[in-house]
């Protein structure tokens, strides 16, 4: 078998455009998903039964079904139910945001729990009002503690985003598949695509260790 990787270079601009779509989609869904995840985590730890029930159902549904089904459902079923056409990008954003929200809410929930009750005792002993307790003590500690796992969540999302190619969105995976079909060079093209994903995901995975070692140990959080 003759392998010629230089052939892939001819398509680097198409691959870059695909990568840009993947990155954009991932970034938007990380931002929205983290916000959703934090609010969901607050809901899941709330005293209100209805809030706990709603957020709990949402998280369990999204953690307990394949992302591909979620994606298909939002692409094909949601427009039927709502009676409106959704663009590819909007549908993909909704689907991946909901996915990110579900997994990051578990991360935030654990980190909220880990802010010990003695921290709250200290707040009360200092007479800090409830709003200050949340904003200045609980939130920052919970977010800092969540960072390592959150970074892993981001990497998962980045990789899972390749699934949007299955519904015809022109992301890196989709472009790669197309090129590979067109020029009948699956080994070269798909290998390069895999390497591109890896080159982006790997440093973030490493960053997790860095954050744990440097930041969290320094603060002993």
């Amino acid at each position: 078998m003759d392998l010629d990787f230089t052939i892939v270079l001819r398509y680097y601009d198409a691959l870059l455009i695909g990568l840009w779509t993947t990155v954009q989609l991932t970034m938007v869904c990380i931002a929205l998903g983290c916000a959703l995840g934090f609010v969901t985590a607050l809901g899941r730890t709330s005293k209100n039964f209805a809030l706990r029930a709603i957020t709990g159902t949402y998280v369990e549904l999204f953690r307990g079904t394949p992302v591909l089904i979620q994606l298909f459902w939002i692409f094909f079923c949601l427009p039927l139910i709502l009676g409106v056409e959704l663009s590819n990008f909007i549908s993909a954003t909704i689907a991946l945001t909901l996915y990110m929200g579900a997994i990051s809410s578990e991360t935030f929930r654990a980190s909220l729990k880990s802010v010990g009750s003695e921290q709250l005792d200290a707040c009360i002993a200092l007479g800090l009002p409830r709003s200050v307790q949340i904003r200045n003590i609980i939130m920052p500690q919970a977010v800092l503690r969540a960072v390592p796992t959150l970074l892993s969540n981001c990497v998962s999302l980045f990789k899972e985003s390749a699934l949007v190619s299955a519904v015809g969105m022109a992301d890196l995976m989709f472009v790669g598949q197309n090129i590979s079909n067109n020029i009948a060079r699956p080994v070269e093209v798909l290998t390069v695509v895999a390497i591109i994903y890896f080159v982006i995901a790997f440093p973030i995975t490493r960053a997790v260790t860095f954050v744990e070692r440097r930041m969290l140990i320094r603060l002993a959080i």
């Binding site: 003695e118 921290q119 005792d121 200290a122 200092l126 007479g127 800090l128 009002p129 200050v132 200045n136 003590i137 920052p140 500690q141 800092l144 603060l219 002993a220 959080i221």
Partner: peptide, 20 residues
């Protein structure tokens, strides 16, 4: 101790007087 681990010593001291 129950110091706030994410704040430095000075910040630990001034938080309550500033906010309360």
């Amino acid at each position: 101790y129950t110091l706030f681990p994410h704040l430095n010593i000075l910040q630990n001291l001034v938080l309550a007087p500033r906010k309360v």
